[in-house]
Nucleic acid binder design. Structure first.
Ligand code: ZN
Ligand code: ZN
Ligand code: ZN
Ligand code: ZN
Lengths: 346, 346
DNA sequence: GCGAGTTCATCGAGTTCA
DNA sequence: TGAACTCGATGAACTCGC
């Protein structure tokens, strides 16, 4: 019908429904700009009865706006300031994410373990959160001394107990039997996926807004978790687990590993992480986590993690092997709750 | 066509439509100046039939104005005095807005407290962060037992010490001398700016993604901080401070106050904040801050703040006066670092 | 794809000043 | 007087989450 083509306000060419009425672009913009702020301010100097058509729609704002309402345009479909603001920051977040997804693109995807394909990593994080909330059952907090000591403290403990063992075997060749050796080789190959890009000539970006900083951090962890999933799938030992156990291990381990491995990007001298993407190095200072907005989010692990970093700084002469082994140990933590088959690795 | 390039009045070079007719700049100005005021005053001494062209358009005003009307120029497109006035004030207020929100370039021109114009609140937050980083000088952490006990714990301490004093004066009228009474009235008036919208019929939104939740929190604090700045500027006590001290107080106090006042939106039964905007209630559970992604950001204040909330839940029978007074106390904290004139308030 | 918002070149009012 | 401005309003052509 002609009604579907013509603006119900001015008779111009319509471009679909706008605020619940078929209108043209200009009447849409006009309504968005004036419906809330100027509804009462316009005055008609011609008897409040002006005909509104393509030619004279701009002659009398009062009558144009009146006609907008008369044909049924609705102000409740306008975004509030808060909604605009929120939408803006969501778009901002997505921008950051996409900018960094360019690296991926590999892997034929599809196939196996649909439970681990995990659509967006966002959802993993959310899952993890929800899981954490339901602390009624015997789970993370109680099982694993998580509630007070935190992931980071936990990693710290692991670190101390493990280093004496791993240090002597830097020439990992024949101290294990053949099966173990193969698995170790496989592990180290798989972990190559996770190698951080080395220092590039990319420009350093000092993050200058709180929101941006948070987004970069989230983005970095999300990307890291994707890589962890990818890496895990390369391990036969991991693939041999049932789907359920794989999911459990990933869900509980991914974020911890991600945090752990961030140490590779930590500059111990000047105390900052350098998050490398294709074309930028984002600088995130350790102090960021001591700033007021973060304080407002509560939580008790800043100091523990700081201490962990300091200790690691001493022991860890950039030997990625240690980190790689810690990664595996965290991943295959047999104490994860709800694990069906508790099989030990290595 | 030539008609689109040539002034319909004098044949000069046109610059588009003016008062509904394609004319040159000079005929436009001529019409604006004379159409209303001099329409009847001009007289032609040459038969009222002068040819109007580029050369002789100034020879006879009467005939020029007549031609203007003849080609269709319309006086109703001239602004009335009222419209001019309106336009002026709109431009004026836009100027003020821009001066207040413009990026950097602070100071110069404008006038009063340019340092508090504070472009975007985002930057304030970042400033706050940066300031917090430079912990080398005697500042927040050491000055105020912030580093371990946190802002929130601090507020908690304040709370305990203050309530006994403030409780008895709920009828704040004549326990102070007049000056103090005036200041208190002024304070409470200013704080009205900060009243949270009361429960509306707006729909409740349960946030379903981590990023969205963070964004809502940031948005809420940003808006709150804007209001705090606005509120502070209404206080003569605050305005009497030098610009530098005003800035310091705001920088250190704004976020703390924002966090503090969030308690007004806290549901103590079900343990969630309800962030109200014009048309939505965003629900943020206390547990959110105990979730893994937040854990990954470190920091040691979740439990303290939780405890603070629990204690306040007991004492605070929704008496906003207490919160209001705490707001002032936090704002005028004399222990802020780098404060030039340490003057006590109240 | 739809329908929110966003962007930006352009228009046409008034304003300034030599 | 008129050339050269300022600036809000407009609307075609976008972006982007859902
Ligand atoms: Zn229309
Ligand atoms: Zn009208
Ligand atoms: Zn002319
Ligand atoms: Zn004449």
């Amino acid at each position: 019908m002609i009604q579907n083509i013509v603006c119900r306000v001015c008779g111009g060419r319509s471009t679909g429904f706008h605020f619940d009425v078929i209108t043209c672009e200009s009447c849409k913009s006009f309504f968005r700009r004036n419906a809330l702020t100027n509804a009462t301010r316009f005055v008609c100097y011609l008897g409040a009865n002006c005909r509104i058509d393509l030619e004279n729609r701009n002659k009398c704002k009062k009558c144009r706006l009146d006609k907008c309402f008369a044909v049924g345009m609705k102000t409740n479909l306008l975004y509030s300031d808060e909604q605009k603001q929120l939408r803006k920051s969501i778009i901002e977040s997505n921008r950051k994410l996409k900018a960094n997804e360019m690296t991926e693109t590999n892997d034929e995807s599809v196939s196996s373990t649909p439970s681990l394909s995990l659509q967006t990593v966002n959802d993993i994080i959310m899952d993890e959160m929800c899981n954490h909330e339901s602390e009624t059952s015997s789970d993370v907090s109680t099982d694993n001394s998580f509630s007070d000591l935190s992931i980071n403290k936990n990693a710290y403990d692991l670190d101390l107990s493990v280093i004496p063992v791993t240090k002597p075997i830097t020439d990992y060749s024949n101290q294990f039997n053949e099966l173990e050796g193969n698995k170790l080789t496989e592990l180290l190959d798989a972990l190559k996926i996770m190698i951080f890009p080395t220092a590039t000539s990319a420009e350093n970006i000092a993050l200058n807004s709180f929101v941006n900083t948070i987004n970069v951090i989230i983005m970095a962890h999300e990307n890291e978790i994707k890589k962890i999933i990818q890496m895990s799938k390369c391990l036969t030992t991991f693939n041999n687990l049932c789907d359920h156990d794989q999911l459990i291990l990933i869900k509980h381990g991914a974020i911890e590993i991600s945090i752990l491995r961030m140490i590779c990007n930590f500059n111990f001298e000047d105390k900052y992480w350098s998050i490398k993407t294709n074309d930028h190095n984002y600088i995130i200072k350790l102090d960021f986590f001591g700033s007021a907005p973060i304080v407002s989010m509560g939580l008790t692990h800043y100091n523990n993690h700081k201490r962990f970093l300091e200790n690691m700084g001493l022991d860890w002469d950039s030997d990625t092997l240690i980190i790689d082994l810690l990664t595996a140990i965290v991943l295959f933590n047999p104490n994860r709750p709800q694990l069906m088959h508790k099989n030990m690795i290595k």
